[in-house]
């Protein structure tokens, strides 16, 4: 079903007929996503529509029952989640999953582990290479934290931080993995209006600065409509609409899905 892409810009992420069943329940059915390189895309839908399941499928936590997932043209069905991350997909979680008992600095330093530059042997024997690379790694992390304004919090234990800051650390941490595609799962959850504005600015900032493709799940419509260039709507696991924010707002089926039958006519 995918068109020839010779004239179109390359797709960072494409799912073809993605389906996931849990026993008798079909969480995601025949979903075709097309996310272009550099796009800021949104994935919305009522609760239980299958959005987080779709994320879990993309990042390899679940294996699809049917269908295919292509990242930069390559199939990512099969590899382990950590391999998929190393291929360039980062994500945050609906319920913030920081390493609670570790410091902010450690939380982000872990992202650099695959590229630490020293082996376990270096670490145990405390070779000069270890000291050099560890210092480099730490400084890179500190600089990274500074981008997000988190540098003063580096030695705070993650679980002691206020919610908004935890969310920022989580995003920073995901970015430290140097992804090409970033998946944000309800980043605005639990935030007050001021924090939401800050978040939207942050997302714009990282989108520009890190040359990222971003796919975001969100319930807060002002975030979705405010920053997304392209939106896909799921309901009961299926795609019911996609397009620009304006298209989606005017789509009857979408309004019905959120507000119930009959509401579509009022839109």
């Amino acid at each position: 079903m995918s068109k020839q892409n010779t004239q179109n810009p390359p797709l960072t992420l494409e799912t073809i007929g993605l389906t996931k069943r849990f026993g008798g329940l079909r969480a995601v059915g025949n979903v075709n996503l097309k996310i272009k390189k550099g796009e800021l895309a949104g994935l919305i839908g009522p609760n239980g529509a299958g959005k987080t399941t779709a994320f879990n499928l993309i990042t390899g936590l679940y294996k699809p029952t049917e269908g295919e997932i292509l990242f930069q043209g390559e199939s990512i069905v099969g590899p382990e989640p950590f391999e998929i991350t190393r291929m360039g997909i980062g994500r945050t979680f609906q319920n913030i999953r920081l390493f609670s008992n570790l410091t902010v600095l450690d939380n982000v330093r872990i992202a650099y582990h695959p590229h630490a530059g020293y082996s376990l042997f270096d670490g145990i024997a405390r070779t000069p290479n270890y000291y050099a690379k560890e210092k480099e790694l730490t400084e890179k992390t500190q600089e990274f934290l500074a981008i997000f304004g988190l540098e003063k919090l580096q030695n705070e234990v993650a679980k002691n931080l206020p919610y908004g800051e935890q969310r920022r650390v989580e995003i920073a941490r995901a970015l430290a993995c140097n992804p090409r595609l970033l998946l944000l799962d309800e980043p605005a959850a639990g935030m007050n209006p001021k924090e939401i504005v800050e978040l939207m600015d942050l997302i714009h900032l990282i989108h520009d600065r890190f040359d990222l493709t971003i796919l975001l799940i969100e319930h807060q419509m002002r975030v979705v409509m405010g920053i997304c260039q392209h939106i896909t709507v799921l309901d009961f696991g299926e795609v019911i609409a996609e397009g620009t924010p304006k298209d989606i707002q005017e789509n009857e089926r979408v309004v019905e899905a959120y507000l119930g039958k009959g509401a579509g006519h009022a839109a």
């Binding site: 991350t85 994500r91 450690d106 995901a174």
Partner: peptide, 17 residues
């Protein structure tokens, strides 16, 4: 640090490669 991250949250650690 990665050893401890596995203790803290496996899913998040996976997502960090």
């Amino acid at each position: 640090r990665t050893v401890m991250s596995v203790r803290e949250d496996e899913t998040a650690a996976r997502a960090m490669g």
